[in-house]
């Protein structure tokens, strides 16, 4: 690092901070996946099958979310019904 660089580089311009931010997001995501019960994908498929007996919903219309909190677990189901169903009711 020369004299001019010394004045120019007032703050670190490395990419380590980018690496750290990306890792923090990625690792949090990986860990959330890891702690999900293994039956979730099957559960999602079966729920979808039942709903599709009655309503023509899209494959992606059911989202299953699993969250672990200190004393309890939350299993959240979100089903998006198509517009036509609402019109029929």
């Amino acid at each position: 690092m020369g004299l001019l660089d010394y004045f120019r580089n007032s703050q670190p311009k490395g990419t380590a901070n980018v690496a750290k931010e990306r890792l923090q997001i990625l690792v949090a995501h990986d860990r959330a996946e890891r702690h999900r019960p293994s039956y979730l994908p099957k559960l999602q498929r079966e729920i979808l099958d039942v709903i599709r007996k009655y309503v023509d919903v899209d494959m992606n219309a059911v989202s299953v979310n699993y969250e672990q909190e200190e004393s309890h677990e939350v299993l959240e189901l979100n089903i998006i019904l198509p517009d036509t169903v609402r019109n029929m009711m």
Binding site: K13, G14, A16, A19, K20, L23, Q24
Partner: peptide
Amino acid sequence: QRVETGEMLSVKDVQDI
């Protein structure tokens, strides 16, 4: 050296994760 110039993850960065 590369940690000090911000080019490499530091011990603390890795430990934070």
